[in-house]
Amino acid sequence: MRSPLATRRALFSRRGIIQGAAERLLAGTAVMLGAATLAFAALQLVPGDTVAVLLGPTTTASPEIRQQIRTEFGFDQPVPVRYARYVGNLLHGDLGSSYQLQQPVSKLINDQIWPTVQLTVAAVAVAVVIAVVSAVVTAGRRPALRATATAWELVALSTPPHWLGIMLLTVFSFQLRIFPVAGAQSLSSLVLPAVTLALSVAGVLGQVLREGLEAALEQPFVVTARSRGLSQSAVRLRHAFRHAATPLLTLAGWLTGTLLGGTVVIETVFSRPGIGSLTMQAVTSRDLPVVLGVVLLSAFAVVLIFTVVDLLHLVIDPRLRTTEAAL
């Protein structure tokens, strides 16, 4: 059975980090093109007349107007021409225009993306800090301490984010009035959403990190390190941690999914602007160009995260950078 590690090894065989990056970039571009093509195909396959969808259920437009829209949106051209134009536009960052809001999708996304980026980055940061502290402090330590940490992580990872969000809102915003109820104007408005999104992530990361640390602490090189006079904590930070980080990286796929889904829920619960709310709106109003724009954006996020993770793998584990046969 080939482990994911072995597959990566094959991918980067005998090449340095730079070649690895170049290769990943190429692969990423291919994935993006694939996603764009799928999005285009989906657009073609929408049942019914696109113009009718565009005009919405209530509009009664004259055939002339319909024809005008057709020409304007290029629906009268043959499919290959439209595809070429579509890809060309994408390369210029043109994702088309929203049917409903009559604005370029790229502008809509651009307006909404920063609150979301802030939210996810803050959430990941909080999650990593919580997980690292909880794991490093408790791994391989007294059973009671360890059990407590494991217990809270289990609770955290199994709490549904929307429920947690509502609870936090009730306590900290409505009753204690420490944090604002909605919006994304101030830094304090970021705290509750970020913590809500972070907690379940932190639970999983903490568990995986502790497992990794404990496995690493059993390795002979840990005894060697201690025999040089290193303290317990120095061994954890300088040796065991890097080993434990590798399994963490393999969670990237899960993490991306959780964050993408999580932002939609969190932004709704906390009435924050962002890609999540934009998606909700677009989906409910069948605003296809916006939905497809978000799909492409998600694909891009996935590609980006996987690329970064692969490169981190290479940076952390030198054994992946070469394939000398271990004879």
């Binding site: 005894v223 390190a225 201690r226 025999s227 006079g229």
Partner: peptide, 29 residues
């Protein structure tokens, strides 16, 4: 005590562990 041990280990008494093949940290030079 543990801190006293740390001053002895490596400095006054060196240990070459069994299993040399896995006794160096594979992630460090």
């Amino acid at each position: 005590t543990e801190p006293q041990w740390q001053a002895v280990r490596g400095r006054r008494i060196g240990l070459v562990l069994q299993d040399a093949l896995v006794s160096l940290d594979p992630l460090r030079t």
